Measured scan of single mutants.
Amino acid sequence: TRVETATETAWISLVTALHLVLGLSAVLGLLLLRKQFPAHYRRLRHALW
């Protein structure tokens, strides 16, 4: 049972790390898009919101 708990903890930390990386890359991508293609960014924002 101890090994299972350790594996679960590892999976949870892995998933958390993946979510963090995905969130950060999404934010960075949006910032880059905003900087380089303001028109595209505006259109995207209108489409999303």
Rank of each mutant, 00 (worst) to 15 (best):
W49E: 06
V3F: 01
E8P: 09
A10N: 03
T7L: 08
L48W: 10
L44T: 02
V27G: 11
L28Y: 11
T16L: 11
K35R: 12
T9P: 09
L44C: 05
E4V: 11
V15H: 04
H40D: 04
R42T: 07
Y41S: 06
R2D: 13
L31C: 13
E4A: 01
V3A: 01
L32R: 07
R43A: 05
A26W: 02
A26V: 06
P38I: 15
A10K: 09
A17M: 04
A26K: 03
L24T: 01
V27A: 07
G23Y: 02
L24H: 02
L44E: 02
L28K: 01
A26D: 01
E4M: 04
L32M: 14
L48D: 00
T5H: 12
L31Y: 15
L33T: 10
T16V: 14
S25W: 03
K35P: 04
P38V: 15
L14H: 00
A17L: 10
R45V: 12
T16K: 04
F37K: 11
E4G: 02
S13Q: 06
G23L: 09
H40M: 15
V21A: 08
T1A: 09
L44P: 04
Y41W: 13
W49G: 12
G29H: 02
R45P: 05
R34G: 14
L30R: 05
G23P: 09
H19Q: 15
L30A: 10
R45G: 07
L22K: 02
K35C: 14
T5S: 03
L20N: 01
V15G: 06
V15L: 05
L30T: 04
T7V: 08
V15D: 07
Q36H: 14
T7H: 05
H19Y: 05
W49S: 13
L44I: 08
L24E: 00
R34I: 14
A47D: 08
R45E: 05
E8N: 00
S13A: 05
L31I: 13
L33P: 01
E4N: 08
H40Q: 15
T1F: 12
P38N: 14
V27Y: 07
V3Y: 05
T1P: 02
L24I: 07
L18S: 05
T9S: 12
T7K: 13
L14E: 03
A47H: 07
A6Q: 03
G29V: 12
T7A: 07
H46V: 12
L20F: 10
V3T: 01
V21R: 00
R34N: 08
L18T: 05
L24F: 14
L18Q: 00
T9C: 05
A39N: 11
T1W: 03
F37Y: 08
W49A: 12
L44N: 07
P38K: 13
L44K: 02
G23E: 00
G23T: 04
T1E: 05
L18C: 10
S13H: 02
H46C: 15
H46E: 13
L30K: 02
V3M: 03
R2M: 13
T16W: 07
T1L: 09
L24G: 05
Y41I: 14
L22Y: 01
R45S: 09
E4T: 06
A47S: 08
Q36K: 15
L14N: 02
T1I: 13
T9D: 07
L20W: 15
H19K: 04
S25G: 12
E4I: 03
L44V: 07
V21D: 03
S13P: 05
R2L: 12
K35W: 13
G29Y: 02
R42K: 07
Q36Y: 13
L28G: 15
T1M: 10
K35Y: 15
R45A: 05
H40N: 07
A6F: 02
L18R: 03
H46M: 01
L24Q: 00
A39S: 06
G29R: 00
A26C: 12
A17I: 07
L30F: 11
T9I: 09
F37A: 14
T5Q: 02
V21F: 11
A6W: 00
W49N: 13
Y41M: 14
W11A: 09
L32V: 14
L32Q: 13
L44W: 10
A6T: 13
H40G: 12
V21K: 01
